[in-house]
Simulated scan of single mutants.
Amino acid sequence: MVAIERAFGGMSVRDVPEAVRFWRETIGLQVDDGDIARVHLPGGGTVILYPKADHEPAGFTVLNLVVADVGRAVQELAAAGLQPQRYPGMPQDDDGAMRGRGPDIAWFTDPSGNVFSVLTD
């Protein structure tokens, strides 16, 4: 077996300073600046944000943020100018959240178009 010391995730962005501002100021996470920025996640994980000239958003949710109340999180993100993603055929309520089919969850995009969610655990 490989002796793994730690792990982290990463996602490409079209503009690192823009991504740093978003994750720090809009979402409220601690972010270290740099050519490759590091987002510190609650619980000890990290995600790196790296520039990619021909960036295309991932076709899946790149980060899930666990919250106590999805409805409240959706309202707070709306107050910050974000709107939930709506997916055809998904049973989302007026807030844009899907409830009662596993954890309550709502999806959003960052400035680079990467999808992240807020969900209950």
Rank of each mutant, 00 (worst) to 15 (best):
residue 59 G to P: 15
residue 59 G to C: 09
residue 60 F to G: 00
residue 60 F to S: 00
residue 61 T to S: 01
residue 61 T to Y: 02
residue 62 V to M: 11
residue 63 L to N: 13
residue 63 L to D: 06
residue 63 L to G: 09
residue 63 L to V: 10
residue 64 N to L: 09
residue 64 N to Q: 14
residue 64 N to D: 15
residue 65 L to T: 08
residue 66 V to S: 11
residue 66 V to G: 08
residue 66 V to R: 12
residue 67 V to N: 07
residue 67 V to M: 07
residue 67 V to F: 02
residue 68 A to Q: 09
residue 68 A to R: 12
residue 68 A to H: 06
residue 69 D to V: 10
residue 69 D to P: 04
residue 69 D to Q: 13
residue 70 V to G: 07
residue 70 V to C: 08
residue 70 V to E: 06
residue 70 V to W: 12
residue 70 V to F: 12
residue 71 G to C: 05
residue 71 G to P: 03
residue 72 R to M: 10
residue 73 A to Q: 03
residue 73 A to T: 01
residue 74 V to W: 13
residue 75 Q to F: 06
residue 75 Q to W: 08
residue 75 Q to N: 12
residue 75 Q to P: 00
residue 76 E to G: 07
residue 76 E to C: 05
residue 77 L to F: 14
residue 77 L to P: 00
residue 77 L to A: 04
residue 78 A to W: 14
residue 78 A to C: 06
residue 79 A to H: 05
residue 79 A to E: 11
residue 79 A to M: 02
residue 79 A to I: 00
residue 79 A to R: 11
residue 80 A to E: 07
residue 80 A to F: 03
residue 80 A to I: 00
residue 80 A to C: 06
residue 81 G to T: 05
residue 81 G to P: 04
residue 81 G to Y: 12
residue 81 G to K: 07
residue 82 L to K: 01
residue 82 L to F: 11
residue 82 L to Y: 12
residue 83 Q to D: 13
residue 83 Q to A: 12
residue 84 P to D: 03
residue 84 P to Q: 04
residue 84 P to L: 02
residue 84 P to F: 13
residue 85 Q to E: 15
residue 85 Q to T: 14
residue 86 R to K: 07
residue 86 R to A: 04
residue 86 R to Q: 10
residue 86 R to H: 13
residue 86 R to L: 11
residue 87 Y to L: 13
residue 87 Y to Q: 09
residue 87 Y to T: 11
residue 88 P to L: 10
residue 88 P to H: 07
residue 88 P to V: 06
residue 89 G to F: 12
residue 89 G to E: 08
residue 89 G to A: 04
residue 90 M to T: 11
residue 90 M to E: 15
residue 90 M to P: 09
residue 91 P to I: 00
residue 91 P to E: 07
residue 91 P to Y: 08
residue 92 Q to Y: 12
residue 92 Q to K: 04
residue 92 Q to T: 08
residue 92 Q to W: 14
residue 93 D to S: 07
residue 93 D to H: 10
residue 93 D to C: 06
residue 93 D to R: 09
residue 93 D to P: 03
residue 93 D to L: 10
residue 94 D to V: 08
